[in-house]
Amino acid sequence: MKTLIIIPAYNEAENIERVVENLKNNYPQYDYVVINDGSGDNTAAICKRNNYNYISHSINLGLAGAFQTGMKYALRNDYDAAIQFDGDGQHNPEYIQDMLDKIKEGYDIVVGSRFAEKRKPFSMRMIGNNLIEAAVLLTTGKKIHDTTSGMRIYNKKMIEKLAQGIDLGPEPDTLALLIRKGAKVSEVQVEMNERTAGESYLTFTKSLKYMTRMMVSILFLQWFRKG
């Protein structure tokens, strides 16, 4: 199964080398592509120097845009599966095989889930996580334990949709929309790492904004969207 690892990277100069070297050395069976999303630091220079396979946006498009570029690349190069992988080293490539096995079983999307088998810890962030989970359950009838996980793998059918669709960013609302349009989704238990460098973009007000947007999108706008 021809598999592509898509690594969106925005100002990840501190992390990108470690992430890509790990993939190149320990997981040579997968292809990878770094999507440098108009970084202001020397992410692109590092990729060029190390001769990585990378695509560079001339200006910043945001995560959704970078993710879609990866999907377009996967579609053009005829990949059977594509996985979204964080540029900051939060995701562990050791779980990719388990996730791929699920794709082979016939699932369209497999989520690398922190809570497929383990219980959620109690925190503000998890309350948000639960709210989104409830909204997805309500609108699709499907229980996804970790809707906000950024580690998701997609089969060929989904690659085509995500590459050609409009406004299908790698977020829970897209997941809900795809499920309602017939995508089969499964979860695989994974462990994620804490960030070792750089800072998370999630501040309190940003989280609140994100939550509001997700709830409106999933509960209301979803019914009018094409997918």
């Binding site: 592509v33 999507i35 396979n53 990378y54 695509i55 560079s56 946006h57 001339s58 200006i59 498009l61 845009g65 879609q68 570029t69 377009k72 690349y73 053009r76 409009i166 406004d167």
Partner: peptide
């Protein structure tokens, strides 16, 4: 916005293909 994103994505992918 959609058109601009498309344009940038296509440009970026093409320049990657040229290099490879």
């Amino acid at each position: 916005q959609i058109k601009m994103a498309n344009l940038i994505q296509e440009m970026a992918i093409e320049s990657n293909e040229k290099e490879n």
